[in-house]
Design a binder for these strands. Sequence first.
DNA 1: TCTCTTTTTGAACGATCACTCAAGCGTGAG
DNA 2: CTCACGCTTGAGTGATCGTTCAAAAAGAGA
Lengths: 201, 201
Amino acid sequence: MTIRSKSHDRDKALSRARDLFWKQGFHATSLKDIEAALRMHPGSIYAAFGNKETLFRMALERYAQEIAESRQKILDAAPDVLEGLARFVESAHPVVRDDVPQPACFLAKTGMDTGLTQPALRAAILDLLDRSEASFVAIYRQAQAEGALPASLDPSQTARRLQATLTGIGVYAMRPDRREQARDMAADLAREIRAMRVLAS
Amino acid sequence: MTIRSKSHDRDKALSRARDLFWKQGFHATSLKDIEAALRMHPGSIYAAFGNKETLFRMALERYAQEIAESRQKILDAAPDVLEGLARFVESAHPVVRDDVPQPACFLAKTGMDTGLTQPALRAAILDLLDRSEASFVAIYRQAQAEGALPASLDPSQTARRLQATLTGIGVYAMRPDRREQARDMAADLAREIRAMRVLAS
DNA sequence: TCTCTTTTTGAACGATCACTCAAGCGTGAG
DNA sequence: CTCACGCTTGAGTGATCGTTCAAAAAGAGA
């Protein structure tokens, strides 16, 4: 029971850290901010998470994992993988959700913020970005296997383009007065994904 | 003569500041870094530019102005405005140039880095982003007037999508091992722009 | 050469940064 | 009830942050 409640606390703290870092970025977030958000004192923070950079990396990884889980859930619920991808783009990606600290992808934002100069973070970000792109590649491949997409389509290229476009929409959505337009763009993108389908004759 | 050489020095300093801030972002750049890059001492920097934030804003504005000038030059040299836009996308945007401190747009990068929380910078960034988007709107409108694009096309919507896509490609290009793929995406984008043309019958 | 003005210099400022650690506290076993 | 152990606490660490300013240097004019 003790262990369970402790890991629960830790979980909640990590969630709060993710939200804070996601909103403010690595450099603009001070330990004072973290203390306030996690409702923990410096000693406890360092005992639990090591240091600021490690905590940030854990927050990043948690973000990536949650996105991946959410995406998988949508895919599982969809009639096929291509439709699942469209649904993910139009309803589940941070870009279109409003219960999220920032519309832009946390990974992309961090890449910009740190300029990929922080060695320990750099490796983590590149890895997580790779996984995201790889999951899109896998989705397109599966869609081809299901006969929903033409075999001539290059899954890697298409995945890269999707990744870049989603990122771009996310950055655009950072402007509070443009959230709606960003959602429209995401809806357009979903429509384009559906339009790729080759109809069985 | 004195005045000229002074404004020239100031110009060079501002250029260096732009490169430094562009590469490292606002928060990750210390005044020590700035002193080294501008080869100036703190007193002179503050005498010339006010403070760090003002210097940053000036660097941002200079960046935006140079991009706008470069875009205008490309447009002027092109046979028509739609072809000019395609050429800008495939050869002049920071995304595809390699003589630039960072492939991602300085404005977008700053928006991510500061989270648009810094009030003085926020206004400047939003304004400059607006101008960029407005220039794309103007380009699409002119292309319609020239008969190169169908009247049914929504210039605002198309401009937003272009802005977002270019931003996304820029973020993607931040990874040194993906510069080539980013350039490919820019080339694809240019191709898509050319493909929008309605051919006179 | 001398004087007045402008610019450059860099030491120093208070604030804040990420981080540490000795002391205090709560809890559960004996 | 007592004691021992593990977690929490927050004042304090040296370093670095952005910024200032008095003094020195450079420049201009006579």
